[in-house]
Amino acid sequence: MIPTLSRRQIWFMPVALLLLSTMGLLFALLGDAWWDVMSWGTLGYAVFVILWYVLKSP
């Protein structure tokens, strides 16, 4: 039987992604050039994570 996960285990990735997305949404608003690039990286990471887990099929 699979052990029950702790709250930390359940929420680590969702909270990390939430913070990264927030930064990504703000970066491009606060600056240009490198700020835009950082925005693409942080907000795009959410898309990457989804593709990673969905394409990692058995």
């Binding site: 699979i2 052990p3 029950t4 996960l5 709250r7 285990q9 359940i10 929420w11 680590f12 990735m13 969702p14 994570v49 990673w52 887990y53 969905v54 990692k56 099929s57 058995p58």
Partner: peptide
Amino acid sequence: LYAPFMRKLPFGSIRWE
């Protein structure tokens, strides 16, 4: 509702089978 559903599933689990 995310937490009660994910209590035994590591992040990103998709039960394809």
